[in-house]
């Protein structure tokens, strides 16, 4: 390899890395502010504005939110919904995506059109509520797991990923006596781990942020997920979003620090999911496994 190119290549690497780290820094600073703010006193937050390190260190906000009855319980609810929901999502999405990726499948196009159309048009909140109710899911966790079992968006992209797998694989499996379900389970799924990890993340984050459906479908507030608590605190701290007339500021807003502490507690667990999934994104997983 000529030296000249290596020089240019190295310069490219340097600039590339520098730009990426600069971008990472810009994106992470506000989160540092939220973390710093959660440990700061109300006085400092009010007078100093943007802080990256509190001069006066306070744990009051965390003491307060952990003293509430709801925090731990609703975190557990959220973890349950996230894990169970993501498994259901992946099962149904992949199962449906694979046949749609197969060129020899009949009715492929009408089914896909049906899926796409459902992305663009929706019956709206109330009719969906009525369906969920008629299925008897109101006030059960099923109402948070089943009505969103397949995201049309994810389905279409995962189908695209399946489609890019080499065709030869299927043929050879068929010769080995596998039926289509066998091919899917034994060959397609293992080869698509990076894609599946990605969609596991997408779905998991979706479930983690469950808020509106929980409040709509579940009357029993002991079954509410963490986002309800988070939204209540963040919005109260803002003095009510939008139309505050209904509130008439009768409820004193919680301290800013409490708001930030809740954000930290409710985002950290899901943030930690990504680094664990990352190993599946490593280059060449796909072909590596084919060879092995």
């Amino acid at each position: 390899m000529p030296i000249k190119q290596s020089w240019g290549s190295r310069l490219f690497d340097g600039v590339n890395a520098a730009m990426l780290f600069a971008f990472a820094l810009i994106t992470v600073i506000p989160f540092i502010y939220v973390i710093a703010g959660s440990f700061a006193t109300q006085k400092e937050l009010l007078t100093r504005g943007f802080i990256l390190f509190p001069t006066e260190f306070s744990l009051d906000a965390y003491k307060y939110i952990f003293s509430t009855q709801t925090l731990v319980r609703s975190l557990l609810v959220t973890v349950f919904i996230t894990v169970a929901g993501t498994l259901i999502n992946l099962f149904f999405t992949c199962l449906m995506a694979y046949p749609l990726a197969r060129r020899d499948m009949d009715f492929r196009k009408p089914i896909l059109m049906l899926v796409v159309f459902s992305m663009l048009f929706s019956g709206g909140m109330i009719p969906t509520f009525l369906v969920v109710k008629q299925l008897g899911m109101i006030d059960t966790y099923w109402s948070l797991l089943i009505p969103g079992a397949i995201s049309a968006f994810n389905l279409i992209i995962i189908r695209n990923f399946f489609q890019q797998l080499p065709d030869g694989l299927e043929e050879s499996a068929k010769i080995d006596g596998c039926n289509d379900l066998g091919i899917f389970l034994r060959i397609v799924l293992p080869l698509s781990m990076p894609a599946i990890a990605t969609f596991a993340l997408f779905y998991a984050v979706g479930h983690w942020n469950t808020f509106f459906n929980a409040v709509l479908y579940i009357n029993d507030n002991t079954k509410w997920p963490i986002q309800v608590l988070l939204r209540q605190i963040v919005i109260l701290a803002l003095g009510g979003i939008g139309d505050s007339t209904a509130m008439e500021s009768e409820v004193p807003p919680p301290d800013q620090a409490v708001k930030m502490a809740v954000i930290v507690v409710s985002t950290l667990p899901i943030l930690l999911v990504y680094p664990f999934l990352q190993k599946h994104f490593a280059k060449g997983v796909l072909l590596g496994s084919v060879k092995g």
Partner: peptide, 9 residues
Amino acid sequence: FKYWPMYGI
């Protein structure tokens, strides 16, 4: 879950 509620439109 998508087409049954669509009467809402």
